[in-house]
Design a protein around this nucleic acid. Structure first.
Lengths: 251, 251
DNA sequence: CGGGCTCTTGACTCAGCTCAAGATTTGTGG
DNA sequence: CCACAAATCTTGAGCTGAGTCAAGAGCCCG
């Protein structure tokens, strides 16, 4: 558990005027929803966008905040989380480059969002984006698909939180990271782990200590190696996958 | 945990020819997505629909099954769940009258679906429904909204599964039931609990025994009364809500 | 009214938590 | 580039909430 530095400031996306370059050269263009737009549509979208930076640990949005802005993540990692009154925290997901931040239909965020390390966003006014969504059915469809993918991931995580052992959870976490940020289809992968042990714990429904012990265990077994604190080499992704799915001899 | 009667049969919605009455007199019309359709649209929808019954414990769909059909729940309760290879089960949600069953965009179900008691469905061919969705933006929007609501509920449940105590989970469960199937805004409610203790446990990430002990505890405290096994009277919904949210003295 | 469920309760166990040192790593300033 | 403080991470020892195993008690249905 982790009381966290939730020294909530104003709780709203603050817009900085900056807007670097055109959408056509954007690094996450292919990964983000913009991928479904034509060049002329992209140009219209560019007109209602602006860039914005959040530093390590900054709160980006509050739960239940009524917000007029949504965004694409250009770089960095965001944690989405919920809190209980006494400070218990559950991370409901992480956003990486190319992911969409914000409620797509309702005006309210369902979770808090905080920057894990420095984050760069491409921000849109929600009303204007919704106008575009009304005008371009393929854009709405794409956002619908994103929501569906997010839901599928949430259901998988419910299985993890409700029924998996600590060892299976940690293995699942690394597999998830490899699938989402690592090179595709590599039998072994060197991945960045931008979040703290305590964030990992809050994502897995465990304590920091248990996460640490399980990682040590994996190192001893030789399934992972750690060149540095926030770098991890998954030496046997297939075995990790088996543990994650609970097929192997339990623990 | 619960190995369940997953004696998977053919795993597909089987269509019976029956089709009782017109949509205009349908009992769940206002609750289901059909509510956004005009009379003439409703008539077109009716042309591609058929009714179907599943008995207690019948498997309605398998996880990852590629299915050509989706449905509205007309009556009864459906449990949606995931399994680990060794039989550990996590229920990801329940569907009640008016709810939509099926993947809205992809062709694959993310979970198993099983009838809790007798279930009546209004079944649609998925391709035909998608045609309607393409033709009627307000229908797509409505299904998008449903998906968003389902996602929000899943996020709340992640907090429950990751961070709440057994007592808080059981209280949350009853509050959820009251909110979804009970009369609205009643300070106390008499609700039907169609699912078994073991299903409740698989929804809450607990064992049957722990659920049973927690319910006994609530009875002793006087917060609930049980006229029968599957009937529950929530005598102090506000207090239950407080426990569910973890604000009260823990446990 | 009896046999098979499902549910409840009790006694004991254990996976993961808590509390408490240490050990690393990171960041900072001289 | 090094020293040193702060933060983060690891490890250990003991505790505990929920699980497991095992009786019973109710309930339902033929």
């Amino acid at each position: 558990m982790n009381m966290g530095n939730v020294a909530v400031e104003q709780g709203c996306l603050r817009v900085t005027p900056l807007s670097s370059g055109r959408c056509t050269v954007c690094g996450v263009r292919e990964a983000a929803f913009c991928a479904v737009l034509s060049p002329s549509e992209l140009q219209q979208l560019h007109a209602i966008s602006s860039h914005k930076i959040f530093e390590q640990g900054e709160l980006i949005v509050e739960e239940d905040a009524t917000v007029r802005q949504v965004a694409n993540v250009l770089g960095g990692t965001i944690k989405l989380f919920k809190l209980l009154p006494d400070g218990r925290q559950q991370i409901t997901g992480f956003l990486f480059a190319g992911d969409f931040l914000g409620p797509m239909l309702s005006g309210e965020y369902a979770t808090f969002a905080e920057a894990v390390g420095r984050v760069e966003l491409c921000v849109f006014d929600q009303d204007r984006l919704r106008e575009r969504m009304d005008a371009w059915p393929h854009l709405e469809r794409r956002l619908f698909e994103d929501a569906t993918a997010t839901l599928d991931r949430a259901l998988d995580w419910m299985l993890l939180l409700g029924r998996k052992t600590a060892g299976e959870r940690v293995a699942s976490f690394f597999v998830m990271l490899a699938d989402r940020v690592g090179p595709k289809d590599e039998p072994q992968a060197l991945i960045e782990v931008p979040m703290s042990r305590s964030d990992i714990a809050d994502y897995l429904g465990l304590t920091m200590e248990t996460v640490s012990r399980q990682i040590s265990q994996l190192k001893r077994t030789g399934l992972v190696r750690a060149p540095s604190q926030h770098m991890l080499e998954l030496t046997d992704l297939a075995a990790l996958r088996r543990i994650a799915e609970g097929s192997d001899e339990r623990r």
